[in-house]
Every structure is written in structure tokens, then in C-alpha cells.
Computed example of a mutant assay.
Amino acid sequence: MIKVENLSKMYGGFKAVDDVSFECRPGTVTGFLGPNGAGKSTTMRILAGLTIATSGDAVVGGVHYRDIPNPGTQVGVLLDASAQHAGRTGREVLTLSAITMGLPLTRVDEMLKLVSLTPEESKRRVRNYSLGMRQRLGIANSLLGDPKILILDEPANGLDPAGIHWMRSLLREYANRGGTVLLSSHLLHEIEVIADEIIVIGHGKIVAQGTKAELLHTAGTFVKAGDHSALANALTSAGIATLPSGDGGLRSEATPEEVGRAAAAAGVALIELRPAEGAGLEEMFLELTGDTQREAQTIEGVTA
């Protein structure tokens, strides 16, 4: 289990992480989402013992990472696939890790096969690897010690669609065997597909967390009209608050009957009026982190 309690990190007068608390349970994949500078990577670095917290606590398996004997056999960490020694071959990277952890060298071949790095590719220098190959090598390194917990920061970067599907299947199987996964990603669709639980962070604070079903379920009403502005004005005049909801529609916590009456009273013809079925992850993300977005930022640009 991963447990973060009231975690804060100050850099001078800037608070990168602000009183963050969450848990990641065995058997689950937890998606960690947030725009640039939201505090995801800082939180993960604190969990991995690379950054010292200003206050609060962050433990993995009930202890601080720095206090775990032979930590690679308990916690697999991948924070930066490009941080691997560029002058070594992929096989050398894994071999040195296996020796450090006291593992049989047969694990090297097992991991290379698991991440689909061929014998020829394993003999190439890491400097000649594509980003996708470095990600595969980093994932292999994180799994080398057969850990119970994985902490992965943007592991899908550089992977092609087939690679993303492979990674998704790998992590799902790992969690199904009882492993704990904390996964950050800017690929929102992949998080929506694989995550059991989702944490959304903005300006260093948790703005939402819960199961995927809880966060993506939306009560209220979806409504759409040919004249979007007239609809928005009619609902506002009737005291009904709304939010943009994809496909040019609006979402409100009011009932369909209340929305329909307000539109009819203003003479606004509706194209669609129905109970909301639940927001998609992208819609939820933008709604929750709207005040943290850079001007004209696109969702593809949202990274740790």
C-alpha cells in the first residue's frame, strides 16, 4: 500500500505540494492526474525518497522508502526513462541492477522478454534507444526485483499504440495479482481505461479523488440547443448554474424538467435534453483543473 498524509513541499516561498493525502491499495491501479506544475512528480519523488518533504508523511508498504532494505525488491520506481546511463547497453543496465539487488542473472533475460526488447536491441547503447525503448527498459528495471508496489511517472511517453496497449495489459495483470500501482500520465484515455481509482491534483492540492465510477458519474442534466448562447442566458436568468459538457452542450445539477421549463419560457428550441450519463475523464479533468490551466493549453500538453 502507498499512503500519503498531509504532505507538503516548499521551494522557497512556493508551495509545490499542499497538504496532500491519499492511499493506493493493493490490487488497484491509481491514476494520478494534473496539469504542468500541479505537484505530481514532486509527490512521487518524495515517495521514492529523492525529495525531502517539508511536512507530512509518505510511506510505501508502511515504511519510508529510504528505510526499506533492498528497496528494488519491494518497490519498483520509474520517474524518468531518459535518466538511464546512456553509455551502457540495455542488458548492462539490467545486469547491474540485478547484481545490486542480489538477483539471479536469469531475471535479466526474463525482463527483456517481458518488455519485448530483442537480444539485438539489448546489446545496443541506451543513447541509441528511442524514447519508447527507454520506457520499456525502465519498466523492465522497475519490475526486475518482483516488487509489490510500482510508482510510474509518465511510463507511456514515447510508446506507440501497440506499446501503450502492451503496457496497459501488463499493469492490469500486475494489479490483478495483488500489486499496487501509482501511475501518472497525460494520456487521459489510457488512465480512464486502466485506472480503478483516480486522483486529480491542481496547484499542489487534491481537487478530486475516488473510484473511476464515483468521479465519472454525473447527476443532473445534459442539454443542447441550436442557439448555445441563448440557452446559456436562459438558464442563467432562471438561476440554473451550468458547465460546458462536450459536443456544444451544457451540464447542470438541475433536473431535466427544470431545465426544460426554463428553456421553454425563454423560447429556446432544444436539440437534446436528458439525464446526464456521466462525464468523460477529459471533461472532468478540465472542469476540476480549469483555473490551473495555462492560456490556450491543450489536453495533449498536460504533463507532470
Rank of each mutant, 00 (worst) to 15 (best):
V20I: 14
A195H: 13
G178N: 08
L286V: 14
T292G: 13
G290L: 06
G290D: 15
Q74I: 00
A263M: 01
A296H: 14
A265I: 01
L117W: 09
F14V: 15
R172D: 08
V77W: 12
T100G: 06
L170Y: 10
T28K: 11
S41F: 09
L150K: 00
I99W: 13
I199R: 11
E282F: 11
I68E: 00
V60K: 02
P244Y: 07
E190S: 14
A265W: 07
Q74E: 07
V126S: 03
D80T: 03
Q209W: 10
M10D: 09
G249D: 05
I240Y: 04
L144T: 02
R177G: 14
T221L: 03
G290H: 15
L281S: 12
R66A: 15
A232V: 02
A219V: 10
E272V: 04
F32Q: 08
I198R: 11
G102L: 13
E173L: 05
I191H: 08
N128F: 15
K3S: 15
P69V: 04
E287G: 06
L150F: 00
I271S: 10
G56Q: 11
N157F: 01
G202P: 04
E295S: 06
L114N: 09
S41D: 03
V259E: 07
L235N: 04
S97M: 12
D227W: 12
A208Y: 13
F14W: 13
W166C: 05
P104A: 10
P71E: 12
C24E: 02
